Simulated scan of single mutants.
Amino acid sequence: MILGYALIFAMGCFSLALLMNLWRIASAPTMADRILAVDTMTVNVIALITLYGAWMGTSILFEVTMLLAMTGFVATVAFAKHILRGSIIE
């Protein structure tokens, strides 16, 4: 019972963090700041999906979060390479 309340509170906190990241994407002065905000959004979405999976008692969502983490990492590296070199594929 208390664990359920803690999960709901944590999900609310991560949802608020997602909204703050959306604001940062809209108001960031540089592209690097926007990329960091998108990367942080990926981490927050992973946390939300993991908390939801724990709340529902299912383990399939943990595999989804692993795929999302790998995709988010590759996307962040690709964005950073694009900023540094101007192209992703050499």
Score class of each variant (00 low, 15 high):
residue 69 A to Y: 10
residue 15 S to V: 11
residue 7 L to E: 03
residue 78 A to S: 09
residue 7 L to H: 01
residue 28 A to S: 06
residue 54 A to E: 09
residue 3 L to I: 14
residue 1 M to C: 12
residue 9 F to K: 12
residue 88 I to Q: 07
residue 69 A to K: 12
residue 57 G to K: 04
residue 10 A to D: 06
residue 51 L to Q: 03
residue 82 H to Q: 08
residue 12 G to W: 01
residue 13 C to Y: 13
residue 72 G to E: 04
residue 29 P to G: 02
residue 33 D to C: 11
residue 28 A to T: 00
residue 59 S to R: 04
residue 46 I to G: 00
residue 47 A to V: 09
residue 49 I to T: 11
residue 10 A to W: 02
residue 65 T to K: 14
residue 81 K to I: 12
residue 90 E to L: 09
residue 13 C to M: 13
residue 79 F to V: 05
residue 4 G to D: 12
residue 69 A to F: 05
residue 55 W to C: 05
residue 2 I to N: 03
residue 13 C to A: 15
residue 31 M to D: 05
residue 23 W to M: 06
residue 30 T to A: 04
residue 16 L to M: 13
residue 56 M to Y: 13
residue 65 T to L: 11
residue 3 L to D: 15
residue 69 A to D: 02
residue 55 W to D: 06
residue 60 I to T: 09
residue 44 N to M: 13
residue 40 T to L: 09
residue 24 R to P: 01
residue 11 M to V: 06
residue 47 A to R: 01
residue 10 A to V: 04
residue 42 T to K: 12
residue 23 W to F: 06
residue 28 A to I: 00
residue 15 S to R: 04
residue 8 I to T: 09
residue 57 G to C: 08
residue 73 F to Q: 00
residue 61 L to C: 02
residue 55 W to K: 13
residue 85 R to C: 13
residue 6 A to F: 08
residue 89 I to F: 12
residue 89 I to V: 14
residue 89 I to N: 07
residue 39 D to V: 08
residue 77 V to M: 01
residue 6 A to E: 09
residue 9 F to L: 15
residue 13 C to G: 14
residue 57 G to S: 02
residue 49 I to H: 04
residue 73 F to P: 01
residue 2 I to H: 03
residue 6 A to Y: 12
residue 27 S to C: 10
residue 34 R to F: 00
residue 57 G to Q: 12
residue 46 I to M: 14
residue 61 L to N: 05
residue 14 F to T: 15
residue 59 S to Q: 08
residue 48 L to M: 04
residue 38 V to P: 00
residue 62 F to R: 11
residue 4 G to I: 03
residue 63 E to F: 15
residue 3 L to A: 10
residue 1 M to Y: 08
residue 15 S to E: 15
residue 49 I to V: 15
residue 44 N to I: 04
residue 74 V to C: 10
residue 54 A to M: 12
residue 16 L to W: 08
residue 25 I to T: 09
residue 10 A to F: 00
residue 60 I to M: 05
residue 29 P to R: 06
residue 78 A to H: 01
residue 73 F to L: 10
residue 77 V to W: 01
residue 22 L to I: 13
residue 13 C to Q: 08
residue 48 L to Y: 09
residue 26 A to C: 14
residue 58 T to P: 03
residue 66 M to H: 10
residue 67 L to G: 15
residue 75 A to E: 08
residue 37 A to K: 00
residue 48 L to R: 06
residue 40 T to S: 11
residue 28 A to R: 02
residue 14 F to M: 10
residue 36 L to N: 03
residue 65 T to G: 10
residue 62 F to E: 08
residue 30 T to Q: 04
residue 10 A to K: 06
residue 65 T to D: 09
residue 14 F to H: 10
residue 27 S to I: 11
residue 37 A to P: 05
residue 44 N to S: 14
residue 33 D to S: 07
residue 67 L to D: 12
residue 13 C to K: 09
residue 60 I to A: 12
residue 27 S to R: 15
residue 3 L to Q: 04
residue 88 I to G: 05
residue 69 A to G: 07
residue 2 I to D: 02
residue 20 M to N: 07
residue 52 Y to T: 13
residue 75 A to N: 01
residue 89 I to E: 10
residue 83 I to H: 04
residue 51 L to E: 06
residue 52 Y to M: 14
residue 60 I to R: 08
residue 12 G to A: 13
residue 43 V to E: 00
residue 78 A to E: 10
residue 69 A to M: 00
residue 39 D to R: 02
residue 80 A to G: 02
residue 26 A to I: 12
residue 86 G to I: 06
residue 2 I to G: 10
residue 13 C to W: 03
residue 76 T to A: 06
residue 80 A to W: 02
residue 1 M to I: 07
residue 8 I to M: 11
residue 88 I to V: 13
residue 69 A to T: 03
